[in-house]
Amino acid sequence: MARSIAERLARKADMDGTVFDSAGVKAPKAAPPNIEAASFLRMEKIDILRHRSKPVSPQLADSSDIILAMTADITAQLRESIIPEYAPKIVLLNEAVDLSTKIMDILPPSDGSIAAIRRLYASLLAGVGRLVRTLEDPGACPEWFGAKSMERKFKVGSRSSGARASAATIDPEKRQFIANFLFDFLERSFEPPTITQLIEAVGSMGHRLGQLEIEELMRQDLHGFVRQDRQGCWVLRNDATKRRRDEAREKARARNAANQAKARSETEDEEKLTPSLAYKTLGITKETEVEEARRKYRALLKRYHPDKFHVDNEFREMAERKARRINEAWDLIKGELTQGQAT
């Protein structure tokens, strides 16, 4: 199970150079997988039916760069009795990945129940997911991962080295995009998608996120729109679609208004209308007769009357702007012109 998950996550992360294998301490040679586990993984679209178990052997240990154990007991067993000569290579999975968060020991399913298998799957996914992310970022690699040649194969992720994987480190724009994508994905899904399907869907959009990050996104960015059902799958709330659509419309309206205002101020000569500019706009001087000025003003209004422009709506708008400007100019100097000439 661990191997399949690791392989799948590594494939998503473009880590083609890495080979994963699994072996059991007490495992018999070439035994088929547990049928319950296999059928559970089938639902997660992982096929392990063809896998066969194998016991831990010195040859296998020799060919590996690192050996990850699932529990502290197994680590001790491996170090002390089974393959003591390879002790430096043996690491407990939880210790290897993220020391800042405690994950419980990954226990093999005590009974064959689906609940136990699901628990195992979840903890493996968390542990292996973090391992893959750690391997991706050479800066964050623990000391045990010393093979320089291997390091170079991994892409350096955008995360700063050593930082804890968290949705908080995602670029806000990207984060918004992923949140929107998750919402759409939930909306499109006929059945509530499992967390793996969500991880894969986000991965297919080119964003490598783990379970924790996706859950953080769901809780923070889509707060109020999504909830978890009894099985722990994320689903949309009843009125989420409508509310989100309304919100998007409101945003688009605000954005449009802002854009238009900006465009207007760019295209129009938005120099503040001063009296001298107003005289210039109307093509008159302070000495012009009031009657003459009024005639000019009316002629200009007629010239830029929006109804005279039929070819292009934009032309009409431009004419409207011109007419507005002429009116403003006239309003500004009208009083001055009549007063100045009256006295």
Partner: peptide
């Protein structure tokens, strides 16, 4: 005709 009108209106603007 539409072309001619276009040029004329643009000229006024």
């Amino acid at each position: 005709r539409d072309y001619r009108e276009l040029i004329r209106e643009a000229g006024i603007l």
